[in-house]
Amino acid sequence: MAELVGLAEGIATLVRDGDVVALEGFTHLIPVRAGQEIIRQGRRDLTLVRMTPDIIYDQLIGAGCASRLVFSWGGNPGVGSLHRFRDAVNNGWPAPLELDEHSHAGMANRYVAGASGLPFAVMRGYAGTDLFRHNANLATVTCPFTGEVLTAVPALRPDVTVIHAQRADRKGNVQMWGLTGVQKEAVLAADRSLVTVEEVVDTLDPRPDAVVLPGWVVTAVAVVPGGARPSYAQDYYDRDNDAYRAWDAISRDRDAFTAWLRTEVLDPVGS
């Protein structure tokens, strides 16, 4: 059964320097507050994994938490680039950032392989691209039945996966719905997992559209209302589009970013 913990305790216990850390969420249910707690606790040399890194990954990279990024698309959705990400890649500030780039399908297949206990996944993607010349984590494999040459991608097995969901019960069973991505697979592939939720309830309401993670596959659950803001949590709050637009100006300048990080994350008013 998953343990109910506070957010700071969960991050302190589960996320360690040098870990491979996945913070997954697809357009909503993005674990923003958990990512900021990782920054507050000063984690370093992390390999960050996510199918679609957006502004929380920009913050983690700009804060110096990451040395490597495994991803398939990165940007400030609906706005533009991730400027702290670009600064790390182009200028090594605040630290150099190694990249392991894949397609969405490649990332999803890697998570599925990890969740299935397999060493790699096989797919038809990447044919005709030059990624084979740039990424050592791509190979080809010949089907023993048809002779077809396919792409092989190694399994993703994070040390810890962090996701956000709408609710959990007191036994640690987690329920999420709406536009979900690879959260389930990312949790199942990981050695440890932390799920932040909007609320804990006595009984999960039956929902035919919901994804349920049983408490025995989750390490810990933390109640963090608003934990996905400025992304959204369906049926709880909407996406804060102004915050995404504002991030573009904040993140373009190192001094503006450093000031924002200090006042909003490291030493927020009222903390």
Rank of each mutant, 00 (worst) to 15 (best):
G227D: 07
F120W: 04
L150G: 03
T140H: 11
R192W: 11
V211C: 12
G117E: 10
T196A: 07
R170W: 11
V221A: 06
V195N: 07
L213G: 12
G147C: 00
A165C: 06
V162P: 09
M107D: 02
V221D: 09
A152I: 01
A127V: 11
L213A: 13
D159E: 15
Y111A: 07
L179D: 01
R167N: 04
P158S: 06
V197C: 04
V217D: 08
Y126I: 02
M107H: 13
V112N: 04
V141E: 02
V211T: 15
V141L: 13
L156P: 02
R167F: 03
T140K: 04
R124C: 03
A222N: 10
G117T: 06
A115V: 02
P225H: 05
A165Y: 03
F120K: 07
A189N: 00
N109T: 06
N173T: 15
G215V: 11
F132D: 12
A165L: 10
D169I: 08
H164M: 05
A186E: 01
R167Y: 07
R133W: 07
E148T: 08
H134E: 10
A115R: 10
P208E: 15
W177P: 00
A210K: 11
T196D: 04
H164G: 01
R157Y: 05
V112F: 03
L156C: 11
M123N: 11
T161Y: 09
P144D: 00
V182S: 12
L156M: 11
F132Q: 00
S193A: 14
G181N: 10
A222H: 09
V122T: 15
Q175K: 07
F132V: 01
R207M: 12
I163Q: 06
Q183E: 15
N137C: 01
H164F: 11
R133D: 13
V223H: 00
L131I: 03
T129Q: 04
T196W: 05
T146F: 11
P214S: 10
V182Q: 06
L131C: 03
P206F: 14
R157H: 13
V160C: 14
T146K: 01
V223K: 14
A210H: 06
R124K: 10
R192P: 06
A210S: 13
G114W: 05
L131H: 03
N109V: 00
